[in-house]
Amino acid sequence: MSKPVVLLFAGQGAQKVGMGKDLAESFPSVRALFDQADAAIGYSLTQMMFEGPMEELTKTSRCQPALYAHGLACLNVLKEKVPGLQVAATAGLSLGEFTAHAAAGTFDFATGLNLVFQRGSFMEEACEQTKGAMLAMLGGEESAIRELAAECDVDVANLNAPGQIVLSGSVDGINAAAAKAKDKGIKRAIPLPVAGAYHSRLMKSAQDKLAAALASAAIAEPTVPVVCNYEARAVKTPDEIRATLTAQVTGSVRWVESMQALRAAGHELFIELGPDATLAGLMGKIDKTAKVISIKDLASLEAAVAELNA
């Protein structure tokens, strides 16, 4: 194939019991990658991915390395099947930004795995130390949602798509925001089933610990542009990569602007690598003219390969 592609990687919440199992059974390279992950972490991450239980897989310290390993496994087999794959840029939602950096050569698989394992553990600790919650706001103007967040002393965590913004903060603040949502013209306010207030100031302890981990990690300039969540632009130098990955822990995920920046740069074809098709769904709301192919398992891989080689 000759058309360049942008790789997109899933964030927390995309995990599914059974993720990667059929790929590991079909591709020795995937089995080897998963074995490497198990050995590095010190427990059978892959058994949890393949068999669950979902409650355990959903834990922040578990799902983040699981999603990282799964995304890169999908990429490895895609490259095996499509040797001429031209990657023009990468991006990932929240945790997925680390996977995007690994795909772009910012750090090797082992370094990235260690970082996401630590990130997930630090965030899990922060959730246990604080009383936080998250709230999805569907419909309504961004300005009204930001006003509501300020009034309730909570943070804007995710700008996922037009009409889909997530607030994050203290339980009391989130409850207040939910109660006032309709007054601000917001159609629905849906509490999210999460362990804490991700991408809010309540994650400050996790941010500080991750900054230290990133400071000692081997980080290189990526081989292709990686669009960061925090500033919705491509980052290049190791210093700005460390800074934006750190800031992202308490900062907003500016996914809409990130995708718009990639479209404005002329990118038309995107490949989502993760256990579900969430990012394709978001792109459908952000820019219907963009093409997104989702790869999550063996069947979707084969369908994608046939489409890319057509």
Rank of each mutant, 00 (worst) to 15 (best):
Leu262Cys: 05
Ala218Met: 08
Pro191Arg: 04
Val256Ile: 08
Thr250Tyr: 05
Lys209Pro: 02
Ala181Asp: 02
Ile190Asp: 13
Asn175Trp: 07
Pro225Glu: 00
Ala176Ile: 06
Leu210Phe: 04
Gly251Arg: 01
Ala232Val: 00
Lys204Thr: 15
Ser200Ala: 09
Pro238Met: 03
Ala161His: 01
Thr246Asn: 11
Lys182Phe: 09
Thr250Gly: 04
Trp255Asn: 01
Ala178Trp: 00
His267Ala: 03
Gly274Glu: 06
Gly274Thr: 08
Glu268Met: 09
Phe270Arg: 02
Ala243Tyr: 15
Pro191Lys: 02
Ser252Gln: 15
Ala247Gly: 15
Lys285Arg: 14
Asp208Ile: 12
Arg201Tyr: 07
Ala217Asp: 02
Cys228Arg: 11
Gly266Ala: 09
Gly173Arg: 04
Asp155Ile: 02
Val171Trp: 10
Met283Pro: 03
Gln260Met: 12
Asp172Gln: 14
Ser252Asn: 15
Met259Gln: 11
Pro238Glu: 04
Val249Cys: 08
Ala179Trp: 08
Leu192Val: 08
Thr278Leu: 13
Pro222Ser: 01
Gln248Thr: 05
Gly196Tyr: 02
Gly185Val: 03
Ile241Leu: 06
Leu159Phe: 10
Leu245Glu: 05
Val235Ser: 02
His199Ile: 00
Ala261Val: 04
Phe270Tyr: 14
Thr278Arg: 06
Lys209Gln: 12
Ser200Leu: 07
Thr278Glu: 11
Glu257Leu: 10
Lys182Asp: 13
Ala265Gln: 10
Lys204Asp: 11
Gly284Val: 04
Tyr198Ile: 07
Ser258Gly: 06
Gln207Ala: 06
